[in-house]
Design a protein around this nucleic acid. Structure first.
Lengths: 112, 112
DNA sequence: CCCATTGATAACCCTATGGTTATGACTGAC
DNA sequence: GTCAGTCATAACCATAGGGTTATCAATGGG
């Protein structure tokens, strides 16, 4: 029968998003964008603790995961956290978090 | 000044959890455990689409991320989704998801 | 025009990681 | 005691991934 773990269309995005979020530096960049709003690569490099090329690559990954958007302005590129970007992951959490609670909440209210 | 992206204590867990969730096979195993409850490695191997050793290793990672627990019973090992396991990630999502919405909801209600 | 700033790419290194097969340690059934 | 089933670990391979420095294209300012 194979309940079959298949990742469907949306699955690719989920995968990309979890992968994108699984790196501390990337999360930090994202958190900074969320808190402070649109930032240039230059500004982000200043706080990232890694080299500028690395920041560019991290931002590229966040962009492919649709968690940020880029806006070119002259020689600078401004990145912003993308509205509704977390939706796929949030949705996954909602579904499995819910089942999770449903299965356990009654059993052990604050247990392990 | 370095606003300094440091991952604190809790950070390690968050990192491990996002990493654990960033693999499709691992998510599938987790989803199966959440939906169907406690399962032996044997049973999980039957649905995982990868070899038994790989299943063991994936389960090991999920365990280190505190997303599952293991219970030895004779020659079988039964794994279960761990209650409250997603808490760290959920918390992260709550904080940044909230800021996210807060920053955007008013601006573009259903935009991009 | 020339130069400095900005950011993306390339080339490279090393480690982590997903996958495999082979093997070994326990356990349960006969 | 022997044999089969269950799982974890080891050894190995290939690729992806984080990090670096060097470089190049493009833009803006004097």
């Amino acid at each position: 029968m194979t309940v079959e773990l298949q990742e469907d269309n949306r699955g690719a995005t989920i995968d990309a998003q979890f992968k994108a979020l699984s790196d501390g530096t990337r999360r930090a960049l994202l958190e900074y964008l969320v808190r402070e709003g649109e930032q240039s690569v230059h500004a982000l490099t200043a706080i990232a603790g890694v080299s500028q090329p690395m920041v560019s690559r991290h931002l590229g990954k966040l962009k492919r995961a649709r968690l940020v958007t880029a806006r070119r302005a002259g020689r600078e590129t401004f990145y912003s956290a993308r509205a509704k970007g977390l939706a796929p992951v949030v949705q996954w959490m909602a579904v499995y978090g819910a089942l999770w609670s449903q299965r356990f909440t009654a059993l052990e209210d604050m247990g392990a």
